[in-house]
Design a protein around this nucleic acid. Sequence first.
DNA 1: TTTCTTGCAAAGAGTTTGCAGCTTC
DNA 2: GAAGCTGCAAACTCTTTGCAAGAAA
Lengths: 154, 154
Amino acid sequence: MESRIDRIKKQLHNANYKLTPQREATVRVLLEHEEAHLSAEDVYLLVKEKAPEIGLATVYRTLELLTELKVVDKINFGDGVSRFDLRQEGAAHFHHHLVCIECGAVDEIQEDLLGDVEQIVEDRWNFKIKDHRLTFHGICWRCSDEGQEEAERT
Amino acid sequence: MESRIDRIKKQLHNANYKLTPQREATVRVLLEHEEAHLSAEDVYLLVKEKAPEIGLATVYRTLELLTELKVVDKINFGDGVSRFDLRQEGAAHFHHHLVCIECGAVDEIQEDLLGDVEQIVEDRWNFKIKDHRLTFHGICWRCSDEGQEEAERT
DNA sequence: TTTCTTGCAAAGAGTTTGCAGCTTC
DNA sequence: GAAGCTGCAAACTCTTTGCAAGAAA
């Protein structure tokens, strides 16, 4: 069976790029931290653990490349850094995020909840949708549970 | 009748801030360019036309203040700059955006299209929604009207 | 060889901060 | 006169770029 990294390798080759050791190390870090929403700096530090000679610029260049090939999505939660998310294979659209304003946790919603909404937007605004970004800000289940337990305990 | 700027002035006073000439000039620029999604630099240049002595830092500080008071929303379309949007008065939620990947235009959708979706998210993920950000990326009506040949050539 | 890729350091862009002077109450 | 606010310049953070050296086809 073909592994995920093999398929990414093919995608690179198809676009005339090589899967160098540095690029492979970067991709592996992304695969090993799929739901972590890592910043470039995060990725750099993690790659460095295995391949200490790598430079930050290479990580940036690799992430840019992967974004271009739509292997990852570059996202921005408004905290000043770009974060990178592996795109689900075969996913037509980008997944959604739940950002907790209490603890900062970011959860993912893989389901596409926007089918109807997109239809409306395309028809009513005559806008051909290629992708979307949907983020909810609020209180996650962990934080609202915590409050409750604490309330119950006392 | 009470003007919009009066209401903003009150909001400031309630939070123990003053509406200084510099702050007023900044707010006026925002009011005069409501759908423009101005960056801090844009605002600075526009304010400068009327009040040339103003400093960029003051504009940044004012925008930060207005964001804190929820008079404006700080948004980010992934192009490296923060943009500032006056919040509709009385709007429970933030409006949505259509970003054209051809020409870069940003249109607004004031309607709240997410009622059903939010209900699902709150129930299924046990997440208390406070706000949301929804942006569609695609081709706007202007570009699909005029740029058809170019799109087909590639 | 020729082309692509890398690491380093420097540069760049956007934003924030320290501080002395100025307003306002 | 204390507190808040401003303009300026310097500092800071994140990201990109120039370049010489290295790896791969």
